[in-house]
Design a protein around this nucleic acid. Structure first.
Length: 579
DNA sequence: CCCCTCACG
DNA sequence: ACGTACGTGAGGGGC
């Protein structure tokens, strides 16, 4: 029956949420509204493979299209049983993400909203989250069938709605040429995983642990009492009530005492306890979030860490990473960098290669705005922050000192965020009037940027959305709000979204092209990680030169652009040295 | 389950 | 006079 269908909706039922460890229980199919079937599979892996054998050619048929909600999950499950999907695919979750990037995209919500139908919830079937939650394996076949078949049917109906909408909003190219091809790339990266040197982290954790104990003693003795330093509430009471180190304690937006880094930095001179708390905080973070947590994420079978990328969370088009998040591994501080050292190649024969775009977001705003001065700086391969400092402080590039460059760097970043004088002043701790002078000088020197920004906001007000170079849209419902604060936030989004989003478009295209080229040559080297403007590869040493050429080339020429895109790369025995 | 804090781009 | 930088995920506290 499935042979005759061009478009097949399906959904896999498994024993868990992690496709690497979950077992397949069955697959539901739907090729016609209101009619769906569930195929339960045997228990033993080999028996499943035998049973699915006749289905393989369907999944490999390039003339078919397979439709699912969050298809990357199903792809990874089926891959464990030898099935590789070569057919086209349509993910209803990703489709909705393009249509409404700021919303959530869960199937129950989509069914209610677009089909006016409330599906059987997973909770009805296996119970609420917690240790009493049942396993899908323990549920009667009849009930699983009903649940699974319903999901396939809903997915089929959602596809009909979203396909029309994608066409109407001119999303077909972004969807079919970028987002859907990327699914397979991400699935492969996730399956591959990255090796972690647990011993290094263990040693580091113990070392920090000793220091933390000493810092804790010091802090308690300054306070004259023991308390939980990890509790912002208790720490606030100690600092602002017991020690009363300032007469105007900083507050959070909910009225609590504020003890964050920013607040503490400003109180540094007031009491010796502050310095200790700051040290304690940063080491505590490294220990609990990274040194202690990462080893628990290593998969027992593969010995590697397998993150999951989400293509439907960040409203700008960026990816996000969970379980664990490998997009926020420390790099800025000396101690933090020790964590990066623990990310290593799979074996002696491999080397980690890191390739990152240099200043991609500033290059994008230069290109989009066509500002001649900024484009020229990039074409001459100048240090953009020094060039900016030279312009706004009216000195020669040689005369730019560190302070001037730091300030220029902050303005450059502020521009990307749609900055205000207030925001800039707060960020680099200067007066508001000095911030205003700097911004005025900036817009004088880069007039194209200024007019681009006003034009972008104008377009947003008119159309209700802004878009990236690949026509990814972000809708800004508050752009015409009468509330100045709300409108201001929407205006900053109008500036930021096309920049951050176009950078996301570019690296996604590069990833797809690199992946296909690597497949074509059947390299042993593998793409492992994406960190917004950086790609990390596990490179087989014999292939190093070829892969470097390939990666640099595909990244720098992912799109045609009026500003050169430059990629810097390095390889080494760990992620820190490679970066 | 929300809040605060802090790690990254 | 107001209150702001853009986008994320995770750990710990506390209700």
């Amino acid at each position: 029956m499935l042979e005759g269908a061009d478009e097949i909706c399906f959904d896999t039922e498994t024993t868990g949420l992690d496709p690497l460890t979950a077992d397949l229980l069955g697959i539901s199919f739907c090729i016609k509204k209101g009619e769906a079937y569930y195929l339960p599979v045997p228990e033993k892996k080999q028996d499943i493979i035998t049973l699915l054998e006749p289905l393989k050619f369907l999944f490999e048929d390039k003339n078919k299209c397979f439709i699912a909600q969050n298809i990357k999950y199903d792809l990874k499950v089926l891959h464990k049983y030898g099935i590789v999907i070569k057919a086209k695919s349509f993910d209803t979750m990703i489709a909705h993400y393009l249509l409404e990037p700021d919303s959530r995209h869960g199937m129950d919500m989509l069914a209610e909203r677009y089909l006016n139908y409330r599906p059987i919830s997973i909770e009805t079937l296996i119970g609420k989250k917690g240790k009493n939650q049942l396993n899908m394996r323990d549920i009667d076949l009849e009930r699983v069938t009903e649940y699974a078949a319903e999901d396939a049917d809903i997915t089929f109906q959602l596809k009909e709605v979203f396909e029309k909408e994608l066409k109407k909003e001119e999303f077909l190219s972004l969807f079919n040429e970028i987002e859907m091809p990327l699914v397979e790339v991400l699935a492969d990266m996730e399956e591959e995983g990255i090796r972690l040197d647990i011993e290094t982290l263990k040693k580091f954790s113990e070392e920090i642990g000793t220091e933390l104990i000493q810092l804790e003693k010091d802090i308690h003795s300054f306070a004259g009492t023991t308390f939980n330093i990890d509790s912002p509430k208790q720490l606030g009471q100690i600092l602002y009530e017991v020690l009363a180190i300032t007469d105007k304690p900083p507050k959070t937006k909910t009225g609590q005492f504020s003890t964050n880094e920013d607040a503490l930095q400003k109180l540094k001179g007031k009491h010796d306890i502050i310095e200790k708390v700051l040290q304690y905080r940063s080491l505590r973070k490294l220990k609990s979030t990274y040194a202690d947590a990462l080893p628990n994420e290593v998969n027992e079978q593969t010995g590697r860490i397998h993150t999951t990328y989400s293509q439907t969370i960040a409203a700008t088009g960026r990816l996000s990473s969970v379980g664990p998040n490998l997009q926020n591994i420390p790099i800025k501080t000396k101690r933090g960098r020790e964590i990066r050292k623990a990310f290593i190649p799979r074996s002696e024969d491999f080397s980690l290669l890191s390739a990152d775009y240099s200043q991609i977001e500033l290059r994008i705003i230069a290109g989009l705005s066509k500002d001649e001065g900024m484009i020229k700086a990039f074409k001459n391969n100048e240090d953009i922050h020094t060039a900016t400092a030279s312009k706004i402080f009216e000195v020669s590039p040689e005369e730019v000192d560190r302070e001037m460059r730091t300030k220029a760097k902050s303005v450059n970043f502020g521009i990307i965020y749609g900055q205000s004088a207030f925001g800039l002043a707060q960020n680099i701790n200067i007066s508001r009037s000095e911030a205003k002078d700097i911004i005025d000088a900036y817009f004088n020197q880069y007039p194209g940027i200024k007019s681009y920004m006003s034009k972008t906001i104008e377009i947003a007000k008119e159309k209700g959305f802004v878009e990236t170079i690949m026509h990814r849209k972000r809708y800004l419902r508050d752009i015409n709000s009468s509330n100045g604060i709300v409108r201001g936030a929407a205006e900053r989004n109008a500036i930021n979204a096309p920049i951050q989003g176009s950078a996301a478009d570019i690296i996604k295209i590069a990833m797809i092209n690199i992946y296909h080229e690597m497949q074509k040559h059947s390299y042993k080297s593998k793409m492992l990680l994406q960190v917004h403007d950086e790609l990390v590869f596990d490179v087989y040493k014999d292939e190093l030169e070829e892969i470097k050429d390939l990666v640099k080339n595909k990244m720098e020429h992912a799109v045609e652009f009026n500003v050169p895109l430059i990629v810097e790369m390095n390889n080494a025995g760990n992620w820190l040295e490679a970066h």
